[in-house]
C-alpha cells in the first residue's frame, strides 16, 4: 500500500512542471498586448500588486503611465511557458516574463527581462519589491 501511495505521489508530482502553462502564457500575452495597445490600466491590472506599487514608487507616477514608460518589448508568438507550482516563466526570443499564481489567477511579477548567461538572475525593468 505504501508503495502504491508513493508511486501515485511520484506520478502526480511529475505533472507539476507542466500544469497550467496556458493560463500563465495567456496572462503574459494579455499583458504585452495591453502595453502594445498603449492601455496602461489593463497592463497594470495584469501585474501583481507589489509589482504595481514598486513601479509607481520607482517612477514617481501612477502605474498606468509608468508601465508604458518602461519601453517594454512587443514579443510575438505565444512564447514558451514553464510552470513550477505557484510560479511560471514565459520565454520569448529576446524577452522573459515571470508570473506568480494568486487566488484570482496568474499575475506578472517581472517583465522587461532580457536574456542572461547561465545562472545569473534576470534584471527586469518591472519587478516586485
Amino acid at each position: 500500500m505504501a508503495v502504491g501511495t508513493i508511486t501515485g505521489a511520484v506520478l502526480g508530482l511529475a505533472g507539476c512542471g507542466m500544469a497550467d502553462d496556458g493560463s500563465a502564457a495567456d496572462r503574459a500575452s494579455h499583458f504585452y498586448a495591453a502595453v502594445a495597445a498603449g492601455d496602461g490600466a489593463t497592463a497594470c491590472a495584469d501585474l501583481a500588486v507589489d509589482a504595481r506599487e514598486t513601479l509607481a514608487e520607482q517612477e514617481g507616477e501612477p502605474c498606468p503611465e509608468a508601465v508604458l514608460a518602461q519601453d517594454l518589448p512587443a514579443p510575438s508568438g505565444a512564447g514558451t511557458a514553464r510552470t513550477y507550482g505557484s510560479m511560471a516563466q514565459v520565454q520569448y526570443r529576446d524577452e522573459t516574463v515571470f508570473l506568480s499564481r494568486f487566488p484570482d489567477g496568474w499575475r506578472v511579477i517581472a517583465a522587461g527581462c532580457p536574456p542572461v548567461d547561465g545562472d545569473q538572475p534576470h534584471r527586469c525593468s518591472v519587478e516586485v519589491g
Binding site: A14, G85, M87
Partner: peptide, 24 residues
C-alpha cells in the same frame, strides 16, 4: 521510490524558488 519522489518534487520546489529570484 521516496528518494525519486524527493528528486521530482525537489526540482519543482527549487524551480519555484529560482523563478521567484528571477533565475531560469
Amino acid at each position: 521510490l521516496s528518494w525519486l519522489a524527493q528528486s521530482i518534487a525537489g526540482q519543482v520546489a527549487r524551480n519555484e524558488e529560482r523563478l521567484a529570484s528571477l533565475q531560469d
